[in-house]
Design a binder for these strands. Structure first.
Length: 264
DNA sequence: CAAACGCGGAATGCACGCGT
DNA sequence: ACGCGTGCATTCCGCGTTTG
């Protein structure tokens, strides 16, 4: 393994306090993105998802679907905070199409009001937007919620989470074009980080998004191109070989961590 | 000759500036 | 204040090209 990769890992750990999305535990393993959103509600509570809680688990899937869309990542993060704060996190609610339409109709004002109850250290952007098409996706998630839960249990019992990835791929309407792809491993990563299921292997938990792919090019890591489930699994496997319990975070953070590197 | 690769663009909804 | 056009962001996919 080349020294640039070791340097990146070392720097990442050094900068973990500065870069808010790097949530590491005391062993310097990744604690998961949803373990801390770095958003505080006005009642003093910290925005996070406890995945042993049923409705928080639902919100993890909502986040993954919202993140499968284009647009600034803050939009998806604050959208989930909005749902959590208002208690809009029950699959039963989202199966009701009237509820979905009503919420979708007031998405502009709700996005504008977010900073009335969400406090952040540093505002990364002033304007937030809740995409209209994710509301339908949440409805689809809610309608498939029982089957998703069964598939999770089955995968854990059979020690086969690849079939969970394939299953998620069969659901239409959760992603950018049609179906969710690379954010499926994000779901598994968060579940593994919070130790909700015992049999999720680490190599199914790395997310080869655009940022990660570009950093890997700079690091001379040959990442398989992700265009289907098979490619996703092999890319995730490769990332895990290099970064282990830090998953995809080092290449994700590449630009932020290596900005002061002078010896490329 | 099938499988893997990789580029470019479709898809989608919002941001932003401009003119009226 | 409002509508319009252009550009942005990101994922996912089609299809031609390379590779073993």
């Amino acid at each position: 393994m080349n020294e640039r990769i070791e340097y990146l890992k070392k720097k990442l750990i050094e900068k973990k306090e500065i870069l808010p999305y790097i949530n590491l535990n005391e062993k310097n393993e990744y604690a998961g993105w949803v373990s801390d959103f770095h958003i505080f509600f006005i009642n003093g509570e910290n925005m996070k998802l406890d995945l042993s809680d049923k409705s928080d688990l639902f919100l993890l899937f909502v986040l993954a679907s919202a993140w499968s869309r284009s647009g600034a990542w803050e939009n998806a993060a604050f959208f989930v905070a909005y749902l959590k704060y208002h208690g809009y996190a029950e699959p039963e609610q989202w199966r009701n199409t009237v509820f979905v339409e009503e919420l979708c109709a007031k998405r502009y004002e709700e996005a504008d009001r977010i900073y009335e109850y969400c406090i952040v250290k540093k505002k990364t952007r002033k304007k937030l937007a809740f995409r209209s098409d994710i509301y339908d996706s949440i409805h689809i998630l809610a309608c498939n919620w029982d089957a998703i839960g069964e598939q999770l249990e089955k995968s854990n019992d059979n020690n086969d989470f690849e079939s969970f990835i394939y299953f998620m791929r069969t659901i239409e309407g959760l992603g950018c074009k049609k179906r969710m792809l690379i954010k499926i491993t994000l779901i598994l990563r968060e579940l593994r980080c919070q130790k909700i299921y015992q049999n999720i292997p680490g190599y199914l938990c790395c997310v080869p998004d655009r940022r990660v792919v570009q950093a890997c090019k700079k690091l001379n890591i040959k990442l398989p191109v992700v265009q289907d489930t098979k490619g996703l699994i092999s890319a995730s496997k490769r990332l895990y070989e290099y970064f282990g319990e830090l998953y995809d975070i080092p290449p994700f953070a590449y630009d932020d961590v290596m900005e002061d590197m002078t010896w490329i």
